[in-house]
Amino acid sequence: MQPIATFMLLICSLVGVGDPERMAPPRVEDYVNNVLSSLKKEVISDLDVLQKDYPLFAAVNRAANQVSRHRGRIIFLEYVPPKPARKTLMLVGKGVTYDTGGADIKAGGVMAGMSRDKCGAAAVAGFMQIVNEQKPDDVHVIAALCMVRNSVGEESYVSDEIHTSRAGVRIRVGNTDAEGRMCMADALCRMKEIAIERQLPDPHLFTIATLTGHACISAGDGYSIAIDNSVAQKAGHARLLQETGQSFGEPFEVSVLRPDDFDFNKGKVIGEDIVQANNAPSTRTPRGHQIPAAFLIQVTGLDKHGLESNLPIKYTHIDIAASACVFPEIPTAAPIVALAKTHL
């Protein structure tokens, strides 16, 4: 296990720590192709496909797409076990290679260090390397690395725009600095579709992201936060992840979704179903790290797959803003160890 753990940490650190040019989206694709060559891959980079099938990602990508070396892509990776799978893990990682804040630009010196906003995708890549090395007999794993730069420029997406998600939900942009939930949402929706279309056994969907400053205030430095939907919560997943993480030096706090979190996102005017964010920082928004998890459930159609549905699907959102790293320290690779020990 030691060589595997070392290599996993190396992958996560290299992707996560790379500067905005060395690990721009096309360079991440090259790196993943090299080190995870034995996994099945699909890379979505064609602009027409992104605009049609991943419209929220395409909105974030709009300004960066004007620069060829910054153009976004969604990298799907898949491990198929040799025996019939008993469960399926489906992980989506936020890979914002640099976050200027977009049109709602990060001012006052707070932009420095935003090359680390890709540590969610870096963690997913590291997890896939563990899977690639261990080759579990009966666990099917699919991952999506949502690699995009939140640039600012003439083509920036802006607040008040309305975009329709892959699931057909009309989203009004409230703050372009809430790009993480945008870039992951359509890939998460695609994971849901894959689980249903292919009738995958016991699917569990995840989003992993350095998402909110509120997570840092709520949990404190060094702690990941796990938020289960109703189906995963009934299975006791977040508590199990917390218990496992405690045993292996990756501490978690567990947060619970409330009706208020879903109500907060509801559309306010005619023509919108969901508001992407308010115009205040998450650190000044009560329940600022739970609200994005509710958003991801609402805009992907996962709200139709809760406990009372005909097809319940487990979903867990993991906010690693407080645990991934503090610039300029080396990324910690949270929450890979806890996920591997819990699920593999």
Rank of each mutant, 00 (worst) to 15 (best):
A5K: 13
L9K: 12
L9Q: 13
I11D: 08
I11A: 13
S13W: 08
E21F: 12
R27E: 15
S37E: 12
L39M: 05
I44W: 09
I44V: 15
L47P: 15
D48I: 11
L50I: 13
K52A: 15
F57L: 03
V60P: 12
R62C: 08
H70T: 14
I75T: 08
E78P: 09
Y79L: 03
V80G: 01
K83R: 10
M90L: 15
L91K: 01
V92K: 00
K94Y: 02
T100S: 12
A103D: 13
D104F: 04
D104H: 05
A107E: 13
A107K: 10
G108W: 05
M114E: 08
A121R: 02
A122E: 06
Q129S: 15
Q129C: 14
D137I: 05
D138R: 03
I142Q: 10
V158L: 08
G168L: 04
V169N: 10
V173E: 07
A178G: 06
R190C: 12
R190G: 08
E197L: 06
L205W: 04
T207G: 02
I208T: 03
L211P: 02
L211T: 06
A219N: 02
S224Q: 05
G236V: 02
A238C: 12
P251R: 09
P251I: 13
F252H: 00
E253Y: 12
S255L: 10
K266I: 15
G267N: 07
G271M: 09
E272P: 13
Q276N: 09
R284Q: 12
T285F: 01
G288W: 00
Q290V: 04
F295K: 04
L296F: 02
V299W: 04
T300D: 05
D319P: 01
E329R: 13
A334P: 01
P335W: 00
P335H: 00
A338R: 00
L339A: 00
L339W: 00
T342E: 09
